[in-house]
Design a protein around this nucleic acid. Structure first.
Lengths: 342, 342
DNA sequence: TTGAAAGCGATACCAA
DNA sequence: TTGGTATCGCTTTCAA
């Protein structure tokens, strides 16, 4: 379009303009070695005149260390992930790291493909994988290439990766205990498919707890459908409508646990539309405590997984590894956040 | 850790192993030129044996075209952005493009810094900037370097960028008309700071429309606070609580427009907690129609900005430019989504 | 401190 | 089709 469009200036041109060698310019730029005062001035001037900006691509091709962080999430649409990533990014940017995000849409195929693409990362790169499927071969390959893999919300592979997870085991007992004290007769579990480890743990935890507190045959009260991973709001709403239409209230659980806040929102809408009230007719407990959960009506009682803490912990695991080369596995607590829906 | 950890194989090693030249391997990999059957087989075998994976960094250093898309958003925590980006990513990945996302946290300083970092992108790279501040110098610099900048939800800089925006002008008239027909006496505008163009347009649009329909002094009913950009839910809730506590209901607007759904949620919580009901005491209209808006109680009446359409349109602008080198400016419609809050 | 020169891992061109 | 080689923009020895 524009005749005046010039190609980007290179370090060579800067050197020429300043009358020094490229090595000196490089030293000046990176502080690798001292540069005399007058040369420094000439170089800086050349940079300004030529409007020079270093090519990060070429730079990191030659450089050995990597300040890139790649984040892989099941899906970008979930506030639980984006909030966590937001805090991580904040810390990372301040330290001069670059953060790249992608989503694999709950597809093991896309996950594998993305993981393979990341194999060409430099040693020292950090890769955060949220949840993820059971096939560990790709992850191990990555680890063998000296790439630091951090399992987020998922247990580490000992000797291969770091991890930051939430303790999914304790809270179910507290919740069931609470529900029992409030005299709820039947407890339903509303859950997405258990292909991901964290969901599996939650389901197992609840089943154990229900048995422990004397609820018979808890497995019979599991409500799940394959389409509940994606489009959680819509699909949980539709599913709950079906449930409410095909059964009488007395036959249904009077308290429900959902394995995600989004699932809970879908259920709540269905319950409202059918003219029931929460928590009088049905009590609801969610999972994650995304921010919006405190703003719906009634406000959602849920299991808090502190996303700011999560993000900061991930960052600390990364910096620690970059300093010492050691993997870390950290377990974060979950808390019950009591609000109006139960 | 592991003694067996080898350095990554390079194209040279593959060539050596297969007994061909690097050029031929490159041709085989990229289909740049035909490769004879037996050599192809030998190369593929070498690749398998050596576990070779091309270095994308080195590749794009040398290559002229770029398949990278960078997305810059005000903040990652807003579903409006993430939903749009999700659809874009879906299309982009299928075409072999890589998508990189970052957020500037509603800070013009961080925005500038990120934009500068992107200056080292190759010509042909696409950069999508959502909203953004008024300083156009960085963007123009980018454009001069043959980088394709797409202004998202913001008007193009003619001759410099493409753009995809929503028509913020028509819908306010429809809404005010509707409100007037329903006999609302006073209309309040609840808005974040107008530093971003889209918000400014919405505010101006509403003011015009209110005047047009005979509401006197609409400026007097603007409720805004600087902290409403960040932490929208919390801050709008706190602000609305203050408003409700410091005035009698009769003195306040009986219908409210919010410039974002998140703002509306915060208001709704405050209204509920003060014992008022929606829409009887106060009617609420939001903006964006993020998915959750259809699931709160009451369901939020809002201005739909179709995020799937938005994402797909952005993608089409990118592919079109890469084919023809032409900038495009596309305007998308907004629609009123009638639900229960008004 | 400084400059010259040797790579990093790939692609692109040219001659064969 | 092939192979050889210059090159992309930068960092990193190494000798001066």
């Amino acid at each position: 379009m524009d005749k005046s469009t010039k190609k980007r200036a290179t370090i060579t041109q800067v050197a020429k303009h300043a009358g020094v060698s490229v090595g000196t310019v490089s030293n000046y730029l990176n502080g690798t070695a001292g540069v005399s005062h007058d040369r420094a001035a000439r170089i800086q001037q050349a940079i300004d005149v030529l409007d020079y900006i270093p090519d990060t691509l070429a730079s990191s091709l030659r450089r050995k260390d990597s300040t890139a962080i790649h984040v892989l999430t099941p899906h970008l649409d979930s506030a639980f992930y984006t909030n966590t990533i937001s805090t991580l990014m904040h810390d990372a940017y301040e330290a001069g790291y670059t953060v790249h995000i992608s989503g694999y849409e709950y597809s093991s195929e896309i996950e594998r493909q993305q993981l393979r693409a990341l194999e060409s990362s430099k040693p020292g790169t950090s890769i955060i994988i949220f949840n993820g499927f059971d096939d560990l071969t790709e992850i191990k390959r990555l680890a063998k290439k000296q790439i630091h893999v951090i399992m987020a919300d998922r247990r580490e592979i000992p000797g291969y990766t770091s991890s930051v997870i939430f303790d999914n085991r304790r809270v179910p007992f507290e919740i069931i205990c609470l529900l029992k004290n409030r005299n709820y007769k039947r407890i339903g579990l509303f859950t997405e498919p258990t292909k991901l480890q964290n969901i599996r743990e939650r389901v197992e935890g609840f089943l154990e707890a229900m048995k422990y507190f004397g609820y018979p045959d808890p497995e019979k009260n599991i409500y799940s459908r394959p389409d509940l991973s994606l489009d959680k709001l819509k699909n949980s709403y539709l599913y709950m409508m079906e449930i409410l239409e095909s059964s009488k209230r007395e036959e249904l659980p009077d308290a429900w646990l959902a394995t995600s806040d989004y699932l809970a929102f879908g259920m709540m809408r269905a319950i409202n539309e059918k003219g029931y009230s929460i928590p009088e007719d049905f009590a609801i407990v969610g999972y994650d405590n995304i921010e919006i959960s405190g703003y719906v009506n009634p406000r959602l009682t849920t299991v808090e997984q502190d996303q700011k803490l999560f993000g900061r912990t991930l960052w600390s695991v990364i910096t620690e590894y970059n300093k010492t080369g050691k993997y870390q596995s950290i377990e974060l607590p979950q808390k019950i956040k009591m609000r109006g829906s139960c």
